[in-house]
Design a protein around this nucleic acid. Structure first.
Length: 790
DNA sequence: GCTATCATA
């Protein structure tokens, strides 16, 4: 298909390109490769600026004589105040307007509304959703479930929960309104914005709840939270009884947590007729939500955006990176002022592209009198300081009245949803992103560069119209867009290993997984694999019921194998160490290896290396990080040792959270004395308790995974030598070859002893692994016999 | 001889 590409040497491809551009410019046909198609709406959004709040003092606690001002309505009574005449689910937009107009704060007894409040109120009433407030209320009051469609810029995330507050009055019966977000930053910044809009202190009437931070109190009536957080709460309160209304925002993103919540809430609304549910989504798939929720009524509100012109290539591009670079330079040479956003797939590709654009731009400046061009990379693992640079203003022209300067941001799809950059006028979309895929047959998750969906393409285009009309250059044909791109990306639940999810569902009280009503049910094989995995981990018994161990494991925000390893670790006298290791294994890569200093980075890593493997090496790193020498200036220390400060900090944070759960569940925190000969051996044995299913055995030169019989290689980043016969691994990475990464040497006797059920040799197919294990088993038996005989 | 999209508890 035309979206695929053949890899050609990019440098070679780039040569001869400068001429092409110059010719194109000279002939005035710079956009000849593109066919103008249609005008689409782009995005704008009113989302809160997290920095905004610092501009205001934001405290009105000093004021507040309660008196019945104006409209003869009230003095502030204990119940209602400004809202005294409101009845639950019987209010009108008009009534809300009167209450909003003050002068007293309807949600904060005895407080007058501030000047800032009225300033914001004016702007709020300009938002598209406000025109349909009454319509919204009519539907909300009539129906238990409502699907709400609002394009970006409609104001749905900030306004709808407030509309709900005025009509649901959760304070009257001690309940809350919840609004979920897929991302933590969004939950935080939206809560902050809405607290301002309601003229209350963040954390009081309006709060948020995310992992590591609960910014709510007894007073809270509106709570923004991550979808994962609400799911956690559901585990201990199957009816989510603290809430009278639950709003699932950004449902179209179809995160795993959102999908599970939808399935769950579909059941909860039956048990709780008093609970109302609002599903908020972008336009495209609204009907699908409606249908899933038994034809719930739908309300649609337009967004407010600037138009974006879309251009397609006439012919498919062979090499999307080369085509992307060419397009960026062409825009710079020929288009009026405005910044550029280019979407590529990963760190290396992006750094490479940044380098090349810089080179070419310099040449254009020298030879074609082009304006200055600042190029910035953007991806998730980029240090925050460098991420911040994308917000720097574009460079000014070289001389007054000269050709305009601009910035060009080369980004992963982090700029598609998570980060918005103002001032982007041109988007270049090659049509690819890295996506997670799961192969249940070999139980491997991997990342693959794949064509994006139509919905993603639209989202990307929208990024060009945030501040004014923009243009989007799609590096594929219109035909490819129409015929080859799927409508929506596959939801995460269809692309993941579901071991964690199945454990969560069990804990949520869902017994019959097969009949659990999910919007997109995963393949039966994926479910079977998950159940099998949990059974081997002894989290589920043979009947599929949650065991005591499974109950415990579900308390931890960890993959089941990691949770089981942690819970078992006191038996191996090393729970303190496994606690650290578990935290380290659940954060991003510790070791930093910049292209410019690979050798020095490797030398530094050598300092921490442990001959028995990467897990122990990571533990050494953590211990060194916590040593007095490093604590003095952690950041510098990490930098000097080519370690990721962010990852280590995060690991510290996770460790603390896990430790609290250990203490709550009365799991002992113990260590083998460091001087003890068995210090490291105990840790390696504990590893086996969680990862006995991820073992490989050396067979001649290559390794073969146990049971799945996959040929694998040790990842070159390992500290382990080639001589270890049996290894456990943390992950299977499928790139240029099959690699196993983060590996540690183990003894086969431990596998038979600690992973007893899995290592029932009758279940093994004939082969080198089985024969070797049988030999080990016989040896162990003989030893036991002799020992027993004495 | 190394290819980490983005999130989440």
């Amino acid at each position: 298909m035309s979206l695929s590409y053949c890899q050609i040497d990019p440098v070679e491809a780039l040569e001869g390109r400068a001429t092409r551009i110059t010719t194109a410019m000279a002939e005035g046909e710079s956009k000849s490769r593109f066919k103008r198609q249609k005008v689409s709406d782009a995005t704008d959004n009113d989302r809160a600026n997290p920095y905004l709040s610092h501009m205001f003092e934001g405290n009105d606690a000093a004021g507040g004589h309660a008196n019945g001002y104006g409209n003869g309505q009230t003095h502030d009574s204990a119940k209602g105040g400004m809202l005294a005449s409101f009845k639950r689910h019987a209010s009108t937009a008009k009534m809300a307007k009167v209450a909003e107009d003050g002068p007293n704060n309807p949600f904060k007894q005895g407080h007058q509304l501030s000047e800032r409040y009225f300033g914001i109120l004016k702007k709020r009433r300009d938002l598209p959703v406000h025109a349909q407030r009454q319509e919204f209320l009519d539907m909300f009051q009539k129906s238990q479930i409502l699907v709400f469609v609002g394009e970006t810029g409609s104001g749905k995330t900030t306004q709808i929960p407030q509309f709900v507050l005025y009509d649901d009055l959760p304070q009257l019966n001690g309940k809350m309104v919840a609004c979920t977000q897929p991302r933590r930053v969004a939950a935080m910044s939206v809560a902050q914005r809405v607290a301002q809009e309601l003229d209350v202190t963040l954390g009081e009437e309006v709060g948020y709840s995310i992992r590591f931070e609960d910014m709510t109190s007894q007073k809270t009536i509106l709570k923004y939270m991550t979808d994962g957080m609400l799911l956690r709460e559901a585990m201990n309160d199957h009816n989510l009884s603290r809430y009278s209304v639950i709003i699932l925002d950004e449902a179209h993103e179809r995160t795993l947590a959102t999908d599970i919540l939808m399935g769950l809430l579909k059941e909860v609304v039956v048990r709780r007729p008093d609970l109302k549910l609002i599903i908020m989504s972008a336009t495209l798939d609204a009907q699908k939500f409606q249908k899933y929720f038994l034809n719930a009524p739908l309300l649609a509100v337009p967004g407010r955006t600037h138009p974006v012109e879309i251009f397609y290539t006439q012919e498919p591009e062979r090499d999307y990176v080369e085509a992307a670079l060419r397009t960026v330079l062409q825009i710079h040479a020929t288009e009026p002022e405005g910044d550029i956003l280019l979407f590529l797939t990963g760190e290396e590709e992006i750094e490479d592209a940044v380098r090349k654009i810089n080179l070419e731009a310099d040449e254009m400046i020298r030879e074609a009198d082009a304006g200055p061009l600042k190029v910035y990379p953007l991806y998730g693992t980029l240090p925050p300081m460098q991420q911040q640079r994308i917000f720097d203003p574009a460079p000014p022209p070289f001389k007054k009245g000269g050709r305009p300067g601009r910035k060009c941001i080369v980004s992963t799809n982090i700029a598609e949803t998570s980060l918005t950059i103002d001032g982007i006028v041109y988007v270049v979309d090659p049509g690819f992103s890295k996506q997670k895929v799961y192969n249940p047959r070999i139980r491997v998750e991997s990342l693959l560069v794949s064509p994006i969906s139509k919905a993603s393409a639209q989202q990307r285009a929208g990024r060009a119209g945030r501040t004014r009309p923009g243009k989007c250059f799609r590096l594929y044909t219109e035909d490819a867009f129409k015929k080859e791109l799927i409508e929506q990306s596959y939801p995460e639940i269809l692309r993941s290993n579901l071991a964690s999810t199945v454990l969560e569902l069990k804990k949520l009280g869902v017994d019959d997984l097969v009949h659990f009503d999910l919007m997109d049910p995963p393949a039966p094989e994926t479910l079977m694999r998950a159940l099998e995995e949990l059974n081997y981990l002894a989290c589920l018994d043979d009947e599929g019921e949650l065991t005591r161990l499974g109950q415990l494991a579900s308390e931890f925000p960890l993959d089941p194998a990691l949770a089981v390893m942690l819970i078992s670790s006191p038996e191996f006298y090393c729970s303190n160490e496994i606690l650290s290791l578990t935290a380290l294994l659940s954060v991003p890569q510790l070791f930093v290896r910049p292209a410019s200093a690979r050798k020095r980075a490797d030398e530094m890593k050598e300092l921490f290396a442990h001959q028995d493997g990467d897990h122990l090496t990571m533990l050494n790193v953590y211990h060194a990080f916590k040593s007095p020498a490093a604590q003095e200036n952690q950041k510098q220390w990490c930098h000097d040792h080519f370690l990721s400060f962010r990852a280590l900090q995060q690991a510290d944070n996770v460790r603390l959270q896990l430790k609290r759960i250990m203490e709550r569940e009365e799991l002992e925190l113990v260590s083998t004395p460091f001087e003890d000969r068995k210090y490291y051996e105990n840790i390696r044995r504990a590893l086996v308790a969680g990862f006995f299913m991820q073992v490989a055995k050396k067979d001649n030169k290559i390794y073969v995974t146990v049971k799945d019989n996959q040929n694998v290689l040790l990842h070159p980043s390992t500290v382990l030598g080639q001589e270890s016969e049996w290894v456990i691994y943390n992950e299977f990475v499928l790139t240029s070859k099959n690699y196993i990464r983060t590996v540690t040497a183990v003894k086969p006797e431990w596998l038979l002893e600690i992973g007893e059920n899995y290592y029932d040799l009758d279940t093994f197919s004939k082969g080198e692994v089985k024969t070797a294990l049988m030999r080990v088993r016989d040896k162990v038996r003989k030893k036991q016999l002799i020992a027993g005989g004495r």
